[in-house]
Nucleic acid binder design. Sequence first.
DNA 1: GCCTGTTGCGTTACAATGTAACAAATTATA
DNA 2: TATAATTTGTTACATTGTAACGCAACAGGC
Lengths: 163, 163
Amino acid sequence: MSANSIAFHSDHDHQHCIEQALSSARQICSERKQRLTPIRELVLKLIWQSHKPLGAYELLPALAEAGFNSAPPTVYRALEFLQSQGLVHRIASLNAFIGCPSPDHSHDGCFLICTGCGTANEIEAASAMRDLQRQAEALGFKTQHQTIEIAGLCPNCRESAAE
Amino acid sequence: MSANSIAFHSDHDHQHCIEQALSSARQICSERKQRLTPIRELVLKLIWQSHKPLGAYELLPALAEAGFNSAPPTVYRALEFLQSQGLVHRIASLNAFIGCPSPDHSHDGCFLICTGCGTANEIEAASAMRDLQRQAEALGFKTQHQTIEIAGLCPNCRESAAE
DNA sequence: GCCTGTTGCGTTACAATGTAACAAATTATA
DNA sequence: TATAATTTGTTACATTGTAACGCAACAGGC
Ligand SMILES: [Zn+2]
Ligand SMILES: [Zn+2]
Ligand SMILES: [Zn+2]
Ligand SMILES: [Zn+2]
């Protein structure tokens, strides 16, 4: 089943998503002997609570409310850690961050970002990447990492727009 | 022949690239009844003079030198126009801009960006996009536009790194 | 437990990137 | 030439991201 399309289904049990993501993150960090500190965990939770990618500065008020320091470096450091562990991705075209639904294995992700409601959804870009890699290699270019983001209309917003 | 790989060949006649890009731009704008004003043309030329994508603020000093106003809105407006005509692309992962080698027809581009020397090169991403589109459509997602950027090492830098 | 090196965090200050708003100048069109 | 539309100048500000440094918390060995 397409766990990948879940963000576009407004009626799913998102509380479950969040808890699953957090428990999975705890396990991953423990296995890798990395420290998922309270700030890092809170930032991850805040990001997962939203289906829209969140900007770094959107996280600050919630951090302050939880009694933490809330200056930019705090949140950027947490985000950097979460990215380094593959727990969140940065969406370059939005300057925003979103939780990764499959942080346990490395993968080539592509984000479908709705220009109507802002919701984003990660899908697998492995076969598209194989194609691009082939071209790149033909030019002698050695791939390190990639940014693949598609803006468009999600099913819900498409319907609203059609009215 | 691979006009597309030209930026990775350090020995090509780049003056020729620039002039070709400018004359092509003039023709395109004239056909579309769009005004390629002095500022817009200068910005386009400055961008083409570099094989590295240029940040907006890197353009300002040159604008000032040419006697133009050089406040951010000036250059952002020129860039917006050039983008609207497909003459330059914005590279989201770098916050920078680069000239399009084929502005005459619409296309799905992918940028190969060297993390060594900063050089970038546009290649065709049509078949990769077909793949992603198929997945997107299966989720009911309607594509509007995309951002595909690959960071890695160009042939030259790869060689240097191997030493 | 206690020392000690390492990592994470608080804090300040600032850099880099991008825009809103409105006035003045220029250009197209009639 | 008059008028409307587009482009540019100008000011001021919003947003996003970092450098640097000192202190606090923690892990691992004794
Ligand atoms: Zn992912
Ligand atoms: Zn939507
Ligand atoms: Zn292009
Ligand atoms: Zn290079």
